[in-house]
Design a protein around this nucleic acid. Structure first.
Lengths: 197, 197
DNA sequence: AGCAAACATGTAGAAGATGACATGTCTAGC
DNA sequence: GCTAGACATGTCATCTTCTACATGTTTGCT
């Protein structure tokens, strides 16, 4: 009765509730580290955002401070209310949130460049995505090596990340081919507006 | 000198410079409409964000007010400096910006749900992505019908959007199969933490 | 003449995110 | 005994974005 409206964002809240569910009681410090290691591919937050949010969540009854350890350490535990909230978000919230992608913005504006410049950009995109793909596939392989079975937290996200990165590589190649074809036919092509006049 | 540092974000600036390059001189009102129609799939901004940004860009010399029309209309034109800035961003800036995706966050936390709930979520994801795919493919088809050749502003982004959406559909199907397989083998599976205790 | 709809531009306040600043504790090694 | 590094928590200023408020003009229809 109060927190039950999440037409608004609250993704950070959900991410923290998820980590607390998966990894058990943890401090703000632990959660910050966990963010860096795991959820970082999907959502980013620094400690300066996490600490205040934890305080608010505690005030809202979604988590409680179970223990105060040494060095001022506060160990948070998820409450029943917090679990319900997380479950509700996962099952009922349709992710509609703004899809803001610098990559896609660059893709959008690519035809404004001269073909040769556009090709340079696309080659860099392809190289970056290929490197990232290797990175993600290593993560995937090391998870399998440790004998973990698929279905752990992060596994589906990792799969999604790998598939999306492969798509980016394929896109960059196709776009480069299109531009090369255009150049061959038109001799010039491209609007070239922002290039040297 | 001075504006040449874009380690910071400035994606909105770039988007506006791109639209001014592509569509020629335009007012804040025009640009707001153009955002809704075209770039919206890639970056969102309302007039309350666009007007102040245009004022700052004019102050920075990236654009100028060419004409003051009726109804207080201001028509902005991109300057040489603005063109250079756009070109520099497109060719030199590596999109590293935060990749925050609610969809991926949901994917990340999916294993926390009971298998049956997870399957419900995945079916909804698949349905949403399929609908969106149809939408994008219609956009693509209508662009072709109008006799436009590939290589216009937005075309590469549209292709990227279509490919990414197809990937999402494929991912949702694969994830659902994984969960179904787990359920069959384990009888229970899933940590089910946030479900009814 | 009156009115609605589109044209057109702004401001204000709240929320989220980022990077820098600030402070202090405990442990392991020298 | 000292000191570096990990542990641990917080605040603050700034920026971006979002929703809502606020204002006024021109056109076209009735």
């Amino acid at each position: 009765m109060s927190i039950l409206e999440y037409d608004d964002v609250m993704s950070l809240r959900v991410a923290l509730l998820g980590l607390l569910t998966y990894a058990g009681p943890a401090s703000g410090y632990d959660l910050t580290k966990a963010f860096e290691r795991s959820i970082n591919y999907v959502w980013q937050a620094g400690h300066s955002q996490i600490y205040p949010e934890l305080a608010k969540m505690a005030a809202d009854g979604l988590i409680t401070v179970e223990a105060q350890g040494t060095r001022g350490r506060k160990t948070y535990t998820i409450t029943r209310e917090g679990s319900d909230e997380l479950r509700r978000w996962l099952t009922e919230h349709t992710p509609s949130g703004p899809v803001r992608s610098e990559r896609a913005l660059q893709a959008f504006l690519l035809p404004l460049l001269e073909p040769s410049d556009a090709l340079t950009v696309l080659r860099r995109v392809e190289a970056d995505a290929t490197a990232r793909l290797r990175e993600l596939e290593e993560l995937f392989a090391s998870a399998r090596d440790l004998g973990a079975e698929p279905g752990n937290v992060g596994d589906f996200a990792l799969d999604l990340g790998i598939k999306n990165t492969r798509t980016t590589v394929a896109w960059a190649r196709a776009a480069a081919e299109t531009i090369e074809a255009t150049t061959r036919t038109a001799g010039d092509g491209g609007t070239g507006a922002p290039s040297g006049e």
